[in-house]
Design a binder for these strands. Structure first.
Lengths: 343, 343
DNA sequence: TTTTGAAATGCAAGCCATTACATTTTCTCA
DNA sequence: TGAGAAAATGTAATGGCTTGCATTTCAAAA
């Protein structure tokens, strides 16, 4: 209201200065070959002299696109998504685009709000993590012809573009590797599985592995907790107070695993001699903690980069969904070993 | 041009559906308290029903404002800026704004390009880290009345808004605390100081402390390196190969310090018994590494939040710069102790 | 009841670049 | 030289929203 209007030069100012119409100036800028050489020179002079730069809003309304792409991630704090998002952003910049990020704090409603905000901010495309959300959001986006790419997961929906990996298979594979070492009593510390398909998939993969090893998957203790080192820490302590102590703790992600390691050490347990602990994600933390975490390596950078390229290409041709599944691998470090005592 | 225009509902459609004027709908969306409760309910109903979402370009052009704020940080990868940026973003969201982030990879030219891009994308205000950059950029922004807030540092320039802390004083204070323990031979592992005022300030603070303790500041070994755990690691190894081994390594940030700790342990040195190592920033990593880092705690969240609020209030009243200096503190953890052997 | 100021609402003028279409200028060739 | 085509340029509609100002509504005070 009290806001002073910026009086920056407009197309019209340039037109006046060069004694031509605004249409001609616009053409000079966008389709220079449609303008005679002499006129163009005059116009460009005026542009220089006035330090003219086209107005973003006006351009957006006319072109019906902004060059801005949105990414909504559950959290920016711990570095789970950091590498992927950084790669996403770099790839966008390489394509002359810009990234908007928002974080949803693992909350579906917040995410929905963020999606609407990004649309209202003119996002040409959106990156989302995982698949769990109100289906209405997809139609909201489809209606507006805004392409969406899912990352960090894969989807059953064959109309949905994604660049992700198979959380079930990866978790199963790690759990099998651990169980093969002879662990009989194990437990899981997971992120909350409600409205979090990745967490659910990882638990499911672990369950499958347990079943394959002839252990009762129903007897598998599973603790769900929030997303922080402290929560992993507390969850471990909680586990160690009930029943026979497990010799293997499979954590849904590296952050929780780091907390678990710290807690184990705090109560005098040796990792991995007394208890093995595994993570998932292979973030930086995983190799800093001692012992370093045995975990699932996720190709974050590649995923981010490809997601950006996918999104950009979808804005040009939205007709066919693009589905890319990346491979994960297991990184063996010090936190996993055969059980040294009878469970 | 070939882009198909789907006819999405417009403000007018909503206005018709709710039997009010477009002005009222606009106010419902932007200044709800200026509209009566009953009207607002009716309008919101219509918005819901039509699944209306405002057109970004039109809004930007009419309001001369986008609600988008930019932040350019040196890197998103390591979590130095993560907490601060997350807080920045949250505070922005609380004010109904959106954040664009870009990272400059600690490169002035890239940063300049990013600044221009953000402006071209309609940023209403910009957050920058530190003060070192081409002064021409400031006039570019001033001309367009785009407010800028500097964070993570303070500035001499009394026209410049900032929300930061005194890197010199903080580094000096930590170094003094360390030297007071009796260290005689110390070295510094710093981030590159060229075009990085924070890194320079921290080295300077350390130098001042050294001088106050009667040691020759010129004799202080300083290694500059890039920003990663690996670099800190390598820098430490480099230091340990020349001359008498220092008993105190002051690192310009936590990431380098973690690398240094890992390197020390790798070559069989005990931290802190054989060598003390300090960091700066107090990021998550600092408490995960063993021994945990003694470091300078920077109020990242507070800084991010206040920076956002400052930026928003500058867009309303840009006439007076806002300068806020926050306090840092020293967190004593296990990586610093008195020297146990004669240096 | 009447008065009156505040709150709520409406009207309509912008905001700025794009572009279909109209008009003018220039060029080409019989 | 003049007709017609091609090139250059201009005119003005368009897009959807915000907001200064005008008008209406309403409730409290007189």
């Amino acid at each position: 209201m009290k806001r002073s209007r910026r009086s920056l030069p407009t197309l019209e100012d340039v037109a006046d200065a060069a004694s031509v119409s605004t249409a001609t100036v616009s053409r000079c800028l966008n389709e220079p070959n449609k303008v005679s050489e002499s006129t163009r020179a005059r116009v460009m002079d005026a542009v220089e002299k006035l330090r003219y730069s086209p107005n973003f809003g006006a351009r957006a309304i006319a072109a019906n696109r902004t060059g801005i792409f949105g990414a909504i991630i559950p959290t920016m704090e711990n570095s789970i998504f950091a590498r992927g998002i950084e790669a996403f952003q770099k790839a966008l910049v390489a394509n002359n685009k810009t990234m908007i990020v928002a974080s949803s704090a693992y909350d579906v409603d917040q995410e929905a709000a963020q999606i609407r905000t990004l649309v209202a901010r003119g996002a040409d495309g959106i990156l989302l993590i995982g698949t769990d959300r109100d289906p209405g959001l997809y139609s909201f986006l489809t209606e507006r012809e805004i392409p969406v790419v899912i990352a960090w997961a894969i989807s059953d929906d064959c109309t949905q573009s994604y660049v992700g990996f198979d959380n079930v298979a990866a978790a199963k594979s790690l759990a099998k590797k651990a169980l093969k070492l002879g662990h009989k009593k194990c437990a899981v510390i997971s992120a909350r599985t409600s409205m979090n398909d990745r967490a659910r998939a990882r638990v499911q993969g672990t369950r499958q592995a347990v079943a394959e090893f002839g252990l009762d998957p129903q007897a598998l203790t599973i603790v769900e907790t929030d997303y922080s080192i402290q929560c992993g820490h507390d969850a471990f302590l909680g586990l160690s107070q009930v029943g026979p102590a497990p010799t293997l703790i499979i954590c849904g992600n590296d952050v929780l695993a780091v907390g678990a390691i710290k807690a184990a050490q705090q109560i005098g347990l040796r990792v991995p001699d007394d208890v093995s602990i595994t993570g998932f994600d292979d973030i930086e933390l995983a190799s800093v903690v001692s012992p370093a975490l045995t975990t699932v390596h996720v190709p974050h950078r590649e995923m981010g980069r490809i997601a950006a390229e996918t999104l950009v290409s979808l804005t040009n041709d939205p007709s066919h969904p693009i589905q890319i599944e990346l491979e994960t691998s297991i990184v063996e470090r010090g936190s996993l070993a055969a059980p040294k005592r009878t469970g």
